[in-house]
């Protein structure tokens, strides 16, 4: 796959009916990287859960949030960002919500305060590729 990091970005409104679009894009990107079907499903589910959290919280400041897919040689990293930085409060390690529990279980790495300006980052490592 990509020698250099390449990225794809998707901007979504805070609306429930668009979360399925995030899943469609996630499937496409994960398939392109060469993940197995079950790993593609894991990535889809995890992205969808993070979107749910953002959409449920909504924002009085911003009308949309961004999902950036960073494709690297050995991994896919997905970063969620928004002009409304206060949404960072949604992503805490001690979160006991079912959705974020699922995210942590399905992804290889999760970062709650990434320090790159995004609200939350998570990665899946590519296994068994040449």
């Amino acid at each position: 796959m990509a020698e250099r990091s390449e990225s794809i970005e998707l901007t979504l409104p805070f609306k429930a009916e668009y979360v399925s679009i995030a899943r469609l894009v996630a499937s496409g990107v994960a398939a392109r990287i060469g993940f197995d079907m079950d790993v593609i499903d894991d990535v889809k589910v995890a992205i969808s859960e993070v979107c749910n959290k953002l959409v449920k919280a909504d924002s009085s400041v911003a009308s949309s949030f961004r999902i950036r897919f960073e494709i690297e040689k050995d991994r896919l990293t997905v970063a969620f960002a928004c002009e409304d930085k206060s949404l960072g409060r949604l992503f805490k390690e001690e979160n006991e919500e079912l959705g974020m529990y699922i995210v942590a279980a399905l992804m290889d790495e999760v970062e709650y305060s990434p320090g790159d300006g995004s609200l939350f980052r998570m990665s899946k490592v590519v296994e068994g590729l040449n």
Binding site: R23, K44, V45, S48, E49, N52, E97, L98, G99, I102
Partner: peptide
């Protein structure tokens, strides 16, 4: 084809 944490809830 798909169910999320809200559906499970």
């Amino acid at each position: 084809d798909y169910i999320d944490s809200m559906g499970l809830g």
